[in-house]
Design a protein around this nucleic acid. Structure first.
Ligand SMILES: [Mn+2]
Ligand SMILES: [Mn+2]
Ligand SMILES: [Mn+2]
Ligand SMILES: [Mn+2]
Lengths: 224, 224
DNA sequence: ATATATTTTTAGACAAGGCTAAAAAATGAT
DNA sequence: ATCATTTTTTAGCCTTGTCTAAAAATATAT
């Protein structure tokens, strides 16, 4: 059993990890709003428990064990987020903070029952995939909206920024998971794009477009 | 905002308090499975925050402030317990441990929505009253089954022992909140009693009978 | 009233998790 | 290859919450 703090480090490591490359101590400190020295201490402890492989001065990565631990925490986080939206009238910009607390509740039955209640959902309110009981997670290869060209169409499938301020911006512009986006014009100069949705035309900056993960519409793939 | 540990001390103090009398340091240590010296340290801290009145060598009691804080924690504990039973297929002997964790989650909206979902319930699965948002709690004056005499009838309304082992004993004997109990014979020697329910006759020891809170049936009050 | 027993507090220590400042290692630029 | 910069680790300190052992206060019994 891990402490709340240990769980948070494991989660951060998972989110920062990209393939087999080691995650730097500084990056972890950045993500967790702590100091590098605190991170070093914790890395030693996690290595001791064989949850991570830690190479001093080089970086660290999750072991098999650590990864499966991370998946359980992320599963809980995302199931709770969906539960809050589906059953307790939370909006998608309100759930993250509460889920940060709920993800640390220790009860196998509790999370299994939430999973059942929600009919074994595959995605959370932000489009992130929910690992199943065994820790298996769907790996989707999305495009960002910023990668599309004039004339392309796509379905908004996930967002990479779950901050309240960003999600509220999307709400104001009637963008939600599932929205169909047609790229009316893509400005190469600054990477911005004008899209049309069922609610009308929208101008989206490169900053916003790069945070929207989409599945390109194969039906309009002909116009290359 | 209080730490989880502070909240647990406040809760213990509430449960031990009886009227205006001071609660002894030793009693708190007993209830919390800690040592008296640890309790003394915490009492000083809680007094500093004016959550309790602490008189060294005499004991302590909750202030107005501390009491209202206790009510919020107990409200959360009991609402979560009922939620687990009503919505997530937990049995009444499984909920306490998980509720001990969930009661510390900080989110006003979360608990309000749970309350709404359950239709502003008045009692938890063990018959304990649930404080409302303002901290108001129903004060019932129950009798224990052990106080009744031969011929009395009563409705089981609450239990004072929520341990899994005790609740499972009640399950095995088909006793639940709401069960109607007729005292067929009360043995003065050892305080045990034989009761009949809709499922048949039962022999209950004084130890068990004293943990069952009942509302005597006024319709059979005539036989005094 | 005094001695004994019990309860409570104090003193000092420890583990977890954090911080700052200094030292050491790695990286990058000439 | 050497020097300067950045990253990481170490050393030492702090806070929270716990403990044990000793001291002080209170309660109890003669
Ligand atoms: Mn989240
Ligand atoms: Mn999410
Ligand atoms: Mn309980
Ligand atoms: Mn209860």
């Amino acid at each position: 059993m891990q402490s709340v703090s240990e769980e948070n480090y494991i989660k951060a490591l998972y989110h920062l990890q990209d393939g087999e490359t080691l995650v730097s101590t500084n990056d972890i400190a950045g993500k967790m709003n702590t100091k590098a020295s605190s991170v070093t201490d914790m890395l030693k402890k996690l290595a001791e428990k064989s949850l991570i492989d830690y190479v001093p001065y080089k970086g660290s990565k999750l072991t098999q064990n650590g990864r499966s631990c991370a998946m359980q925490i992320i599963r809980k986080h995302r199931l709770w987020e969906l539960f809050l939206v589906e059953k307790l009238n939370f909006s998608w910009d309100e759930v993250h903070e509460v889920a940060e607390q709920l993800e640390h509740i220790q009860s196998r039955k509790l999370i299994d029952e939430i999973d059942k209640l929600l009919n074994r959902p595959k995605y959370d309110p932000h489009g992130d995939p929910i690992p199943d009981e065994t820790g298996t997670i769907i790996e989707n290869t999305y495009n960002t909206l910023a990668e599309l060209k004039t004339g392309d169409a796509a379905k908004l499938s996930a967002v990479t920024d779950s901050s309240a301020i960003f999600l509220q911006y999307l709400d104001r512009n009637k963008l939600e998971i599932g929205s169909v986006l047609n790229v009316v014009y893509r400005e190469e100069l600054d990477g911005s794009c004008t899209v049309s949705t069922e609610h009308g035309k929208l101008y989206l900056s490169q900053m916003v477009a790069s945070k929207l993960l989409v599945i390109p519409n194969t039906s309009s793939e002909s116009n290359t």
